[in-house]
């Protein structure tokens, strides 16, 4: 992924306020998206995003400006995400989001937002370890070895989690009846 340049990262480390603005502008989409995929609601994703940027700013002296910015930044983000999931005492695979039933007659008019909501719901049924890998792949566009660095696991483990995560997502998203209906939309 194309992140901020090393010069901006160094300025961020030094507490430059403009550099913080650059970081927010560059990563707010990814961070918000990760929040949505991990936590499942817009409000939670917004709180998560704020926390990530503020926490990064407060802990910026822990970032080594000689090293790439993204692994440090996304590691911090994922740690916060995990903490929020722990605070919720979320049980992997639990069904804690209301299922939205798409009316047959409204199928043609299914809004993009509803589809995204369905995706988010399907994601909440996955184990968090799969969810975080998919979020880093599909929201932050991180490569296999970058995800491995962020999560502190091997690239092979990342590959396995991504594969299993996608399998589980496909099962949940295209579960009986929904797939044919969604395909029409």
């Amino acid at each position: 992924m194309k992140g901020i340049d090393q010069d901006s990262a160094k300025k961020f480390h030094d507490g430059d306020f403009e550099a913080l603005r650059n970081v927010i502008e560059r990563y707010q989409g990814s961070v918000f998206g990760i929040g949505l995929k991990l936590l499942g609601s817009v409000d939670d994703a917004k709180d998560f995003s704020q926390d990530v940027f503020l926490h990064a700013y407060e802990k910026r002296d822990r970032y080594d400006p000689e090293r790439p910015f993204e692994p440090w930044f996304f590691k911090l983000a994922m740690n916060l995400g995990r903490q929020k999931l722990r605070n919720r005492r979320e049980i992997p695979g639990s069904d804690n989001m209301p299922v939205e039933v798409i009316e047959e007659t409204a199928c043609k008019g299914v809004l993009e937002g509803e589809r995204k909501e369905r995706v988010r719901h399907a994601l909440t049924t996955l184990k968090p370890i799969y969810r975080e890998c998919l979020a880093l792949r599909f929201e932050a566009d991180l490569k296999l070895h970058e995800i491995a660095e962020v999560l502190g696991i091997s690239p092979e483990t990342v590959k396995t989690r991504l594969r299993r995560g996608l399998m589980a997502f496909k099962e949940s998203y295209t579960k009986a009846g929904d797939y044919s209906e969604l395909q029409k939309c």
Partner: peptide, 10 residues
């Protein structure tokens, strides 16, 4: 399913 994941990007 993968397309839905990609399209659900924020």
């Amino acid at each position: 399913a993968a397309e839905a994941l990609k399209e659900s990007r924020a």
